[in-house]
Nucleic acid binder design. Structure first.
Length: 747
DNA sequence: TGGATTCGCGTTTTT
DNA sequence: CGCGAATCCA
């Protein structure tokens, strides 16, 4: 449990020390007029509407420093909220550096969920929890829903537990408790089913002393709204003099309500956001929050920042041109005083392989001109597009890193290991116990589990206690009973060691004695060594934490992808992952209708969906400082089969004056074409490229291993491998290995 | 219970 | 096509 007062005095101490310089006054230099206003308008609500590359986070951190410097508030009196852990870390770093290296730990600076969790630990009793509640991840949620559905005998084929869990979560994200849900929130039969499970689901969570992610905010909102607990909100009103929010366009309703309740007394809230970068609608973000700001906070100062400090003129103009096709926006026109730079290169290619080859060729060319790999990024719409790029990077030996994918703590082995620890910390954690009861295999299958659950339900006890109970009887088969008794003995032993042993040591011991580590060590699957590695990393990372409880919370809410390797490599990630980042040079492949904009997005959300996709395009283009490459292909392999593709409508929306379309191969001609299909049919990416491929096939079929070949660019070489239509060629002059499938001819 | 086989489906992703 | 989940069968 946390002690607020100690936190406050802790965070105030550096400030009260006169020898520590607080904000640097000269920091305000270099901010333009509106930014100055945003920073200096200290009291009252402020909304800073700022576009890409305008330095939003800088405004926020400068303001934070300014408030401290002017003595308007102590560090513990500012609530500073961001969206992701990465952003929170970045903000912590910046604030700390402005304030001359002060520690910002213990400040109210972090993600919505982490801050709400911190509050809820203190007030847990108000909603029937105790302060050491477990935070469940989405996996646990689904399992819980499934259990409830099993119990009620609901057909899970028609109504997958995952869908029900998602629905419940989305209600929570809207700030809705079961009684708040009215006819308007209920669409179809599936919604009504989800609602019927919502209440028992909540009861079960309370019984387990657990919260899901949505609860962290929802419980706090419930407490804040309840007059019986008026003291809680009053306390926070007294505590927080200023509230600051980054990326306001991404807030969902629950986050908005939480903020509004906290801010309504003093109205000192400052939000920063860009409605054109709202790309998380599909997970509940409400652009309306930002559009409605001045109604929610009457008298709000609204500052528009339109000067972009990141990109050159052509890039910015292209981004502006695309986003101007959206109707539902506040409207900004970014400008820059930077030079015009290079036009955006637009290129049509035959298929994904050719696209990757072309992009990599461009990257190599840039590298040879001195551009850094770490300043190049490939931003894709969906992760399956990464594969072709990865293959090509490997073939060419280009250093690259993939950002995204399953997070460390979402990996199966990590969750399993955590489940063991959870049972040790709180043996009534049924979900955790269920997860690992038969991992490694102990011969405890479905039927045994069923027996245990039935007993637990009848007696109203936890699974763990049910096992202890049943082992006293003759109900179970001797073999099963023996196994269970041994398992319980193990847990009891681990529990008794918990107080005397360092937790990282204990975790190692548990993983070892339970046979879980051994299970992966003997597993011969190719990814097993990696899993063993991850488990070792988990135990070693535990050393710095005070206790298991603290560690588990850190895992659930704070631990982020450790992307500390700022190595000299090309970044490969999704467009979503790229928000907030910038690169000198950005590649945007796969601009084909159906892929980008995504068909599903348009089907499910119509115009709204399309506009969100367009904002994604805007985000993509504006990541580039100096160079942007956009490409589309005529043939895309999607889930196994080849589909014909037509260029994205966003390609047509790029203002012609700011792009350079490649005409050499007759792929795409800027200007002249009106209908979207016209580039396709008349200027004919398909027709021309098809010829190339046919020629290749003929050419390649005449070759065999060891054949000497000549390439215009790389000189003479020898074929060292043939795979279908692709040739691996080792070139004599450079000593390089290349994969070629075009322009190869005999010497 | 658990290995083997078929089935089905296929964005984006944070906490 | 390629993977995870559901289902089948020993």
């Amino acid at each position: 449990m946390e002690d607020f007062d100690s936190l406050i005095s802790l965070s105030e101490s550096p400030h009260s020390d006169p020898s520590v310089p607080v904000a640097n006054a000269t920091y305000l230099e270099g901010l333009n007029a509106p930014q100055r206003i945003a920073v200096e308008t200290i009291d009252g609500p402020v909304l800073v509407l700022a576009g890409a590359g305008t330095g939003k986070t800088r405004v926020l951190t400068t303001r934070l420093a300014h408030i401290l410097q002017s003595g308007r508030a102590m560090p513990g009196q500012i609530l500073s909220v961001t969206f992701t852990n990465k952003a929170a870390q970045e903000m912590r770093r910046r604030v700390s550096s402005i304030l001359g290296g002060q520690h910002v730990e213990g400040w109210w600076l972090g993600t919505f969920h982490a801050l709400a969790a911190r509050m809820l630990r203190v007030h847990a009793d108000r909603v029937g929890l105790s302060s050491n509640f477990t935070i469940l991840d989405s996996d646990d949620q689904v399992r819980l829903v499934k259990q409830l559905m099993d119990l009620q005998g609901i057909d899970q084929k028609k109504n997958p537990p995952k869908v029900v869990a998602t629905k419940i979560s989305s209600w929570k994200d809207k700030g809705l408790n079961p009684p708040d849900i009215t006819g308007n929130d209920l669409g179809d039969e599936a919604d009504r089913l989800a609602l019927s499970l919502y209440r028992p689901y909540q009861e079960r969570l309370i019984a387990l002393n657990a919260c899901d992610f949505g609860d962290l905010l929802l419980h706090m909102i419930t407490i804040f709204k309840d007059p019986a607990h008026g003291d809680v909100l009053e306390d926070y009103h007294r505590r927080f003099k200023y509230i600051m929010v980054d990326e306001y366009q991404d807030t969902n309703v629950a986050q908005y309500l939480w903020l509004r309740l906290l801010a309504k007394k003093l109205n000192n809230i400052c939000c920063v956001g860009d409605d054109d970068q709202s790309i998380y609608g599909w997970r509940g973000a409400e652009v309306d929050n930002i559009l409605r700001f001045d109604q929610d906070f009457p008298g709000a100062t609204i500052v528009r920042l339109e000067e972009n400090y990141r990109s050159t003129e052509h890039i910015l103009a292209a981004a502006n041109g695309v986003i101007s096709h959206n109707d539902n926006r506040l409207g900004k026109e970014l400008f820059t005083s930077a030079n015009s730079g290079d036009k955006i290169i637009v290129r049509g290619l035959w298929d994904g392989g050719a696209e990757a080859r072309w992009a990599c060729e461009e990257m190599e060319a840039l590298q040879s001109k001195g551009w850094r790999a770490s300043q190049m990024a490939v931003l894709v719409r969906t992760s399956f597009q990464m594969r072709e790029f990865e293959e090509r990077f490997i073939q060419l030996g280009l250093p690259y890193r993939v950002i995204g994918g399953p997070r460390f703590y979402e990996r199966m082995e990590i969750r399993d290991a955590l489940a063991y620890l959870r049972v040790v910390v709180q043996s009534s954690d049924d979900l955790a116990l269920e997860r690992i009861i038969n991992k490694p295999k102990r011969g405890l299958g479905d039927s045994t589990l069923q027996t245990l659950y039935t007993h637990a339900r009848v007696k109203q006890i936890s699974l763990y206690v049910a096992i202890q109970d049943l082992c006293q009887t003759e109900e179970l088969k001797p073999k099963v009973r023996g196994t269970l008794m041994r398992l319980i003995d193990d847990f009891e032993r681990w529990k008794s060691l918990a107080s005397s042993m360092a937790q990282s040591e204990l975790a190692g011991l548990i993983l070892d004695e339970s046979g879980y580590l051994g299970m992966w060590q003997t597993d011969k699957a190719p990814d097993s060594p990696g899993r063993v590695e991850n488990l070792k990393e988990l135990t070693s990372s535990m050393e710095e934490f005070e206790g298991l409880q603290t560690f588990l919370e850190h895992i659930a809410l704070v631990l982020d992808n450790q992307d500390s390797n700022n190595q000299e490599s090309i970044t490969l990630m999704t467009l979503h992952g790229a928000k907030g980042l910038e690169f000198d040079c950005v590649f945007l492949p796969g601009w084909e209708d159906g892929l980008f904009p995504s068909q599903r997005s348009m089907d499910e959300n119509g115009l709204k969906g399309l506009e969100e996709e367009r904002r994604l395009a805007y985000v993509g283009i504006t990541r580039a400082r100096k160079k942007a490459f956009i490409s589309f292909v005529g043939n895309r392999r999607m889930h196994g089969s080849w589909v014909n593709a037509i260029p994205s409508r966003f390609v047509d929306e790029l203002p012609k004056a700011h792009i350079e379309a490649n005409s050499e191969m007759g792929m795409y001609s800027a200007g002249g074409n009106q209908g979207r299909s016209s580039h396709w049919d008349s200027s004919g990416i398909g027709v021309q490229s098809r010829l190339v491929v046919e020629v290749e096939r003929k050419t390649i079929s005449g070759f065999s291993m060891g054949t000497r070949v000549f390439h215009e660019k790389f000189g003479y070489g020898k074929i060292i491998h043939i795979d279908g239509q692709k040739l691996d060629v080792a070139f004599e002059k450079s000593g390089q290995k290349r994969v070629m499938d075009s322009f190869v001819r005999q010497a």
